[in-house]
Design a binder for these strands. Structure first.
Lengths: 232, 232
DNA sequence: CGCAGCCTTGACAAATGTCAACAAACGTGG
DNA sequence: CCACGTTTGTTGACATTTGTCAAGGCTGCG
C-alpha cells in the first residue's frame, strides 16, 4: 500500500470522519495509478468495480446513445466519481475518460460497501456526498429545461468567473468543443453564442474571457442560486 | 400520534430497517394531512422543514425561472420527496403541488436528521434512496441531452406501457400539458409529436394510447436500460 | 346554458443543428 | 527548428426542430 495519494484522500470530506482502522482497510486493496490523456477509465454499462478518486488532472464524464454523445460533468481534484453506482452495486451510467495526464486512486467497490456497512461516520459522509450530487444533477436539469443555450452560456461564464476568483478576466479551463457538449449544444452553436454575448460585454480571446460589464451580463443571465450556486 | 398512515410508511424501504424505537421517535412529531388538488406544498427556495411522504394521490415537482416553468418529476404513492434537501438542511430546489386530492405525511426535517445520526439502518436506507434518486436524475439528463423530443416521447410511452402492465393499450396517467413539460417541450409540440409517432403505429384517443406495432416503435425509440430502466 | 380550461391545428418565427469550407493551433517526426 | 498533418475553432448557407401566437373544437362543471 503505497502511502502516496492516500494521505490526500484522507482529507476529503468523504473519508475524514471514518476511523483510522476502517480507512486503512479501505485503502488496503486500493491503488493509485497515473494515466495519460484521453484514456477511457470506465465505460457506461460496466459493473462498478472501483470507486475512483481524481488526485490530479481531470476526468470527463460522458454518455453515448444512438450515435450521439454528450459530456455530463467534469471531475477535478480532489474528488470522487461514480459513488452512486458503487453504493448500489449497479452499472455505471456514464463513461469516464482522462482529459489530461491524471493520477487516479481506485478503491474496490466491494470494500467501499463493506466499510460503509460498519462505519457510521463513513456512511454519513457518503450520504452528504450523494445528496450534494443529487442536487447538482437537479440543478443541471433545471438549467437545461428552463434556459436557452445563450442563457446557459452566460450563466456558465458567471459561475466560471466566480470559480476562477471573481476577476473580470479569466480562463475557460474547458476545451470549447467539450464546453459546447456540457452546455448541450454543438460547437458551431457555441461559437455563435459567444458572439451573441458580445452585446452584453463579453470578449473572447482564445481561452480567455473578459466580462466587460458585470451588471449588464448579470441582467441578461439572471443567475439563480437554486440553479447556479454549487454549494446550496 | 395518529397511527393512520404511519403503518404504511413503516413498510417503505426507507423506514423498514430502523428500530421500532427510532421509528416511533421519527413519527412522534409528524402528522398526516389531506390536501385538495392544485395545492402548493412547498416552494423552491424555502428552508426544508419537512420530509414529505405521499400516501395517496400524486404530487408534481416543478421549478420556475425567469417567467418559464417546467415539471421535473411526479411523485406517486408510496414514496418520499425532497429527501436530499432535508439531509443537507438546504433549501428546496423544486416546488411541489398536489395534482389531485392527496394524503401527505410530514416529518420534521430535524427529526429525520437526528434519527439519521443515531440509526445506522436508517442511514443506510437513506443512502440507497439518495443513490437511486441521483441515478434517476442522471438518466433524465441523458434523456434530455441525447434525444429529440420525438424520441423522448417514444421512450416515455414504452416506459409507461411497462409500468401499466405491458399491454399494447394503456392509460397515460398524465395530463398532456404536464407531460409536455416533463418531456421538455410545449403542449403544441407534444400534440405534433404524437402525430409524428403515427407512422410507428401509435394511436391516441384521449388519454388512451395504443401501440400498434411494438417492434416498430422500439426500432425507432431504441430504449436503453441505462436511460429508461427505472431500477438499474 | 355558458364559461373556463385543455387539446389541437395552422401559420409563422426563432432557435438550433448540419454540412462544407477554411483558418488557426497543436503535436509529431524529420 | 521546421514541415506536415491532424484537430479545433470559426463562419456561411441552409435544413430541421422547436417555440409562439391565434383560432377553434371539445369537455367538464357550475
Amino acid at each position: 500500500m503505497p502511502d502516496s495519494g492516500f494521505r490526500e484522500i484522507r482529507g476529503l470530506d468523504l473519508f475524514a470522519q471514518m476511523t483510522d482502522q476502517n480507512f486503512a482497510a479501505l485503502v488496503r486493496g486500493a491503488y493509485v495509478q497515473t494515466f495519460p490523456a484521453q484514456i477511457d477509465l470506465v465505460a457506461e454499462g460496466d459493473p462498478s468495480d472501483f470507486l475512483h478518486v481524481v488526485l490530479s488532472g481531470s476526468v470527463d464524464l460522458y454518455s453515448c446513445w444512438n450515435g450521439r454523445d454528450t459530456s455530463l460533468a467534469t471531475v477535478r481534484p480532489i474528488s470522487t466519481f461514480i459513488l452512486a453506482a458503487t453504493i448500489r452495486d449497479a452499472p455505471y451510467l456514464m463513461s469516464a475518460r482522462t482529459l489530461e495526464k491524471s493520477r487516479i486512486a481506485l478503491i474496490p467497490s466491494q470494500d467501499v460497501r463493506a466499510i460503509f456497512d460498519i462505519d457510521g461516520g463513513f456512511a454519513r459522509a457518503i450520504v452528504a456526498e450523494l445528496a450534494q450530487g443529487y442536487r447538482a444533477a437537479i440543478k443541471s436539469q433545471k438549467d437545461l429545461k428552463l434556459r436557452t443555450s445563450l442563457e446557459r452560456l452566460a450563466n456558465f461564464l458567471l459561475r466560471q468567473q466566480k470559480r476562477a476568483g471573481g476577476d473580470a478576466s479569466f480562463e475557460l479551463e474547458f476545451e470549447k468543443r467539450r464546453l459546447a457538449s456540457v452546455l448541450g449544444m454543438t460547437p458551431e452553436n457555441l461559437s455563435r453564442a459567444f458572439k451573441g454575448l458580445q452585446p452584453y460585454g463579453i470578449t473572447v480571446e482564445g481561452n480567455r474571457i473578459l466580462i466587460g460589464d458585470q451588471e449588464d451580463l448579470e441582467r441578461f443571465a439572471k443567475p439563480n442560486p437554486l440553479i447556479d450556486d454549487p454549494t446550496s
